[in-house]
């Protein structure tokens, strides 16, 4: 039997994500790089009490619409639907407005664990690598240190941080093949490549599926061993509507003017 990790639809790809699951969500926080269509499918499925591990909690549309951007995709759907019980994130709220997550947090409807970004990436990578813990100096003397074991190594204080594993990792890549080999584009690699393999099941949303061998063996970013399912985005999504507000345009004009001085 040839190996075939390609599934036919986004609904099928997330069909076994049940209530109470811990899910990792790739990307950085903007729409590009977020597994938007997997999130929309999970929104349709309606699984509840999810623990969400991600860089931000206010995904894509919700954040960027405040800055005058408009996107066809809606990766913020799980938060808005109230499907999240707990979030583990580095930037849970926005500094410029109140996002959907903050509204739920203030209403006591969600829990939050805030982690520094490098520690989040390494805790995820530890789960993927089977490492039981690591000592980091980031967070010494801050709220992050509270309640954690510390150790002096070579005269410097470190905090013990533990791995972070999930049931499912939802990630986005540029191209994938039926073995689950993936490549990403530019800054979309971000948490996507880190999370691949850190969950029991890793599901990759890709722009394009290619034949085995089309991806250069030296250039594969995520070897297929870390990926369980691959699902392809419909081409029609390419036509995203993006509008810029007067504020965004004015801000750009200001720095162009200053630069010309």
């Amino acid at each position: 039997m040839p190996i075939n990790k390609i599934v036919d639809s986004f609904d099928e790809a997330v069909a076994d994500i049940e209530d109470g699951a811990t899910i990792m969500i790739g990307g950085f926080g903007i729409v590009a790089g977020a597994p938007s269509l997997l999130l929309e499918a999970l929104g349709r499925k309606g699984s509840k009490d999810l623990t969400m591990v991600s860089n931000v909690t206010g995904f894509g549309k919700d954040v960027w619409s405040q800055l005058g951007f408009k996107f066809a995709e809606d990766p913020d759907i799980l938060v808005r639907n109230g499907q999240i019980k707990k979030a583990i994130a580095t930037a849970p709220v926005s500094t410029i407005y109140q996002n959907n997550f903050e509204r739920l947090l203030r209403a006591g409807k969600v829990e939050l664990e805030t982690v520094s970004q490098g520690t989040l990436a390494e805790r995820i990578r530890m789960a993927k690598a089977g490492i039981g813990g690591m000592y980091v100096s980031v967070g010494v003397g801050t709220v992050v240190e509270e309640g954690k074991e510390t150790k002096i190594i070579d005269g410097k204080k470190y905090i013990l941080e533990l791995p972070l594993k999930a049931d499912f990792a939802l990630i986005k890549a540029h191209k994938g093949d039926r073995w689950g080999n993936l490549v990403y584009r530019r800054t979309s690699r971000t948490f996507n490549a880190v999370m691949a393999g850190a969950a029991t099941v890793t599901i990759a949303e890709v722009e394009e599926i290619v034949e085995l061998g089309e991806l250069d063996a030296d250039a594969i970013h995520t070897p297929g061993i870390y990926v369980d399912r691959v699902v392809v985005r419909p081409q029609v999504i390419e036509a995203e509507e993006i509008e810029y507000s007067a504020e965004v345009k004015e801000s750009y004009q200001k720095y162009m003017d200053r630069k010309g001085n």
Partner: peptide
């Protein structure tokens, strides 16, 4: 939109630029 800075603002590509994942980005920092 797949080439942005930490603030999510689009930036120009230039020769010699390299891309990597988040763990690598923080290995560089830490």
């Amino acid at each position: 939109f797949e080439l942005v800075n930490a603030g999510g603002q689009t930036v120009h590509e230039q020769p010699g630029m390299s891309c990597f994942d988040h763990a690598e980005a923080f290995v560089m920092i830490r």
